[in-house]
Computed example of a mutant assay.
Amino acid sequence: MELALPQAAVVAKASAVPEKRGPGIRVPRFKKPTKKGAVSVVVMTFAAALVATMALPAYAFGGGGNFDNGVATDASLSGAQTLEVPDASAALAISRDNYKAPTTEELAAAREAAAAAVAATEAANRAADAAASTAAKGATATSGAFTVNPPSGSYSGAAIVAFAEQFVGVVPYGSGASPDTSFGCDGLTQYVFGAFGIYLPRTVSNQAAMGIPIAPEDAQAGDLMVYPIGHIGIYAGDGTMIDSPDWGRYVEHRPVWGSYYFVRIVA
């Protein structure tokens, strides 16, 4: 008795029987993968991985990939929010100093005041120079020419005082060291001692260094009187001195003043 088999089983059975090989039958062969095909597979794999990598953060950011139910979403943050400030911060006080920036008018006034002070100083200096020049010209016009009397004897204290006396009230104060122009305080002493062949340099400190300091009780006429403030004169005895004092004034014979010490020039 023969059993009827289903058609599908018959097909499967038939396919399971290996094909016979013979001279007239060709068995199909599998093609070897080409380089182009392998590159295509790699590119497709990389593209799929890139799409998956980009999709995961976007999915999580959009809320679909929320892994923590405790994280607030945009909807939960849209409500009212409050901020508490610590008491220590709230208690801080704001303080300001009393400085105020000057106004434009105040700055302009300050500049004008400074310019006026400079102009006044320059004007005073010009006036003093003009007065000294006028006095020198007047003395020349009165006597025809200022004649300096030479020393009447050899070097001594009395001879120094006598020679310096002729410039009192005649030669004005200035920056010079000649009776033809003017006498600074050190210019007068340089000229007077130079008439006796004794050279004294300019400046008070240099002239003071040329002599020997002596005690006030040993001072004699003809000694130098040195003031620490930068002034020098010739001691004339009896508590007086001959010096060229200041702008607008002339050589004077006047009482000693201020704080000073004596220096003696030894010829």
Rank of each mutant, 00 (worst) to 15 (best):
I94M: 09
D74L: 13
V85I: 15
A131T: 03
A93V: 10
A115P: 01
L107H: 08
D87K: 14
L83F: 15
A75D: 12
S78R: 10
V71Q: 09
D74V: 07
Q81E: 12
E84Q: 13
S89E: 15
A117W: 02
E105I: 04
A124E: 14
R111P: 01
A72T: 02
T73G: 03
L107I: 15
A132Y: 03
D74A: 12
L92S: 04
T121P: 01
T121D: 15
A119G: 00
S89L: 15
T104W: 05
K100L: 08
A123N: 06
E105H: 02
A123E: 06
P86W: 03
R96G: 04
G79R: 06
T121S: 15
T121A: 15
D129C: 00
P102V: 10
A91M: 03
A123S: 08
V85R: 06
A116K: 13
A128I: 03
N98I: 11
T82W: 01
R96V: 10
A114N: 08
V118M: 09
A128W: 03
S76L: 14
A115S: 01
T104N: 13
A120W: 09
A132L: 01
A108V: 03
A116N: 08
L92R: 12
A115D: 00
T73L: 00
N98E: 15
Q81F: 05
S78M: 13
S78G: 14
A114T: 09
N98P: 02
E122F: 08
A115K: 02
S95V: 06
S133P: 01
G70F: 09
V71G: 04
N125Y: 10
E122K: 14
E106I: 00
S78D: 12
A127T: 12
A115V: 03
N98W: 07
A109Q: 07
T73W: 00
A115H: 00
N98F: 11
D97V: 02
S78W: 01
Y99F: 14
D74F: 12
A130W: 08
E84V: 12
E122Q: 14
T73S: 04
A113W: 03
Q81M: 07
S76T: 15
A130K: 11
P86S: 05
T103F: 04
L77W: 05
G79C: 05
P86L: 05
